[in-house]
Design a protein around this nucleic acid. Sequence first.
RNA 1: GGGGAGAUACCAAAGUGGCCAACUGGGGCGGACUGUAACUCCGCUGACUUCGUCUUCGUAGGUUCGAAUCCUGCUCUCCCCA
Length: 376
Amino acid sequence: MKFELQHKDPRSNARAGLITTDHGQIETPIFMPIGTVASVKAVHQRELVEDIKAQIILGNTYHLYLRPGLDILEKAGGLHKFNGWERPILTDSGGYQVFSLSGTRKLSEEGALFRSHIDGSKHLFTPENVIETERIIGADIMMVLDECAPGDADYKYAKKSMEMTHRWLKRGMDHFKKTEPKYGYSQTLFPIVQGCAYKDLRQQSAEIIASYNADGNAIGGLAVGEPAEVMYEMVEVVNEILPQDKPRYLMGVGTPANILENISQGVDMFDCVMPTRNGRNAMLFTRRGIMNMKNKKWADDFSPIDPDSDSWVDTFYSKAYLRHLFVSKEYLALQIASIHNLSFYLWLVGEARKHIIAGDFAEWKCQILPIVSQRL
RNA sequence: GGGGAGAUACCAAAGUGGCCAACUGGGGCGGACUGUAACUCCGCUGACUUCGUCUUCGUAGGUUCGAAUCCUGCUCUCCCCA
């Protein structure tokens, strides 16, 4: 994997760049739709390419390991072959499940012992076997196993957690070097900065992560309950340390406002369930603001979902029709909302990139941020 | 014509003397969701001047300290037999 830094915004830390992988290029800043179990929920591959214009999608190690399982993935020839996605794929390591499935897992120095949410069976994830799994999945960008600590963790816990994540990082990196890609194209591994909401821990972690000189670096453990201002502050501190010439991936973020603010701080890559999950729950992010499509006020609004959009669902379907589909619990509602929200997110980062290149990102951000954040 | 069952909030349906402004679903309205255990979850849903008051359980009366619940008349609905 290669990263070329193409433009820097004069009035912020925003950057435009180009990532090159064996499955093609990614223009940054970029938003990466999440396809946890080998599918971006409610969206066809064709829509992902043609309507949403996704350049890279995510898969999840924990979920794919449980289903369909490594034997099937290996027989398929990796995830790209299995789901037909020919562009780059990034896999999360299961680190987030350490956080989200905290009720059914046990952490130790060795790794994370999970109880499957599907059948209750026990599975141990270690920094090493997660690498093996991601090799079998065949992600272009793999993530190391980390502990994503909760947003309100106290200093003592945050420090202990971070230090273990660093030890896991060393083991993961070592194991990565000892193993080879399985399908003939190259794979890379991103380390993850932790440290909760503590500046000094974030700095320490960023220094350690930077020392590995990986192809790209991730910032984890944010947007897990702390205020947005704290997240921005942590990202700022970390990005002062992470290398300029490598892409920075802020994991799991976020709202349109979060994304704009963090682009401004020098983040290049984002992923979040929000456009798809909230979309399935009738929340639409548009160029004019945020709409809850279940609200009665849309019942007789026959104007297009998002008239300024060039994604066909946005001008083809009306707000009133989409509301009707949601109220009637029609599957089509989930599809339209997911396609719409993802194309909006891709549009948002694409516009950000254009304005960074044009040199007026800061002005554009000031102007658009209140609009896309407002509730309609 | 004879016999039987029943009428409860927007709908369905519990409740058969005080703990009932009334269980529970559905519907309606609103909210949440940030590296996806999520087409999920959480509120509210008689009225009002809302830590309280008022009016409700087909309808008109009655019994009782107290009735959606017991009694009587009436209206309507459904089922069975002719």
